[in-house]
Computed example of a mutant assay.
Amino acid sequence: MAGLFDKQAKAYSDARPSYPASWFSELASLTPNHCLAWDVGAGNGQASVAIAEHYERVIATDVSKQQLELAQKHPRVTYAVTPPVLTDEALVSLVGAEGSVDLVTVAMAVHCFDLRVFYSQVKHLLRKPWGVLAVWGYRNPSVSPAVDEVYRKFMESTMGYWNPKTGYLFEGYRTLPFPFLSVLPGGSGCEGRPVVRQMDRHVSLEGYLGLLKSWSAVVTAREKGVELLSDDVLGAFKEACGDEHAIRTCTYEVYLLAGTPSLWTPPSWSCSG
């Protein structure tokens, strides 16, 4: 997967939506200590920098050197390129010792991981009993009924070109294994019960198509001689959109899981939004 994201690093950085600052305030409210956070699959660092507003140090790792080269610099964020799976020794050297990490985050990436290895390492690193793992992903960008119908047909054309693990994301993380105890009100955000939210981004048609062009499935198909965003498809999007220069609201569905390896009573978290 690293090679795919290397090839589309600039498009990915330009097109992907930013997360609301309030999300990171809420996550920070779950951990009484704010010394160290590990952002895994950091990509262009959009989550890493936001987390650094609440934690003294953030280790942001990714398998893509090209992605991290485009990441925003921050005095409390250390970026590091890693192999897909870190050895325990490398993990301790890079991130920290057992029980040293307050928060681990994964934005739009956990479905690609070796979950057995990753979860074992997270449980080793997280502070006991207050450490939290939070993972989230988004899907189904919605603009208007006309644009959404073209998107639906386009989405169908991509299905043979995704990494099979992306199915977890398509299912809204409802089937994603997540062996952690809920830290959210009412037991939400645990395995099988993701918190569902919405995230808005204001985009032109060019920005909207930029998101689609950044998809790994589009890159994979092109390498196999198939152009999913053909002139006909682009024309259909333009016709559905109307004024291609108009700025429209694009609403994404976001799915969040958050938990801890140990049973504890979390601070109150307002589930606004």
Rank of each mutant, 00 (worst) to 15 (best):
G3Y: 14
F5G: 02
D6H: 11
Q8L: 08
A9H: 09
Y12K: 06
R16M: 05
P17L: 00
S18P: 00
S18E: 07
S22Q: 04
S22W: 08
S25Q: 08
L27R: 02
L30H: 01
H34M: 04
C35W: 13
A37G: 10
V40M: 05
G41Q: 01
A42E: 07
N44S: 15
N44I: 10
Q46L: 13
A50K: 15
A52M: 04
A52L: 02
A52V: 01
A52R: 01
V58N: 06
T61P: 11
K65S: 14
Q66F: 12
Q66V: 10
L70K: 09
A71M: 06
V77K: 03
T78N: 15
T78H: 15
A80I: 13
V81S: 10
T82Y: 10
V85L: 13
V85P: 14
E89S: 10
D102A: 02
V104K: 05
V106W: 13
H111N: 07
F113L: 08
L115V: 04
F118Q: 05
Y119W: 14
V122Q: 07
R127N: 11
K128G: 10
P129S: 04
W130Q: 07
L133D: 03
V147H: 00
D148A: 00
V150W: 04
V150C: 00
S157R: 08
G160V: 00
Y161M: 02
N163M: 07
P164G: 08
K165V: 04
G167W: 14
G167H: 14
G167C: 08
Y168C: 04
L169I: 06
E171S: 15
E171N: 15
G172E: 11
L176W: 05
F178C: 00
L184W: 01
G187A: 00
V196M: 10
V196T: 12
M199I: 04
M199L: 10
M199R: 03
H202Y: 09
S204Y: 09
E206S: 07
Y208N: 00
V219N: 07
V219I: 02
A221C: 05
R222D: 08
G225K: 01
V226T: 09
L229S: 06
D231W: 11
D232T: 08
D232W: 09
D232M: 10
V233P: 07
G235H: 10
K238Y: 01
K238S: 12
C241D: 13
C241G: 10
G242Q: 03
D243F: 06
E244F: 12
R248H: 08
E253R: 09
V254R: 01
L257K: 05
P261K: 06
W269I: 10
C271N: 15
S272E: 14
G273S: 15
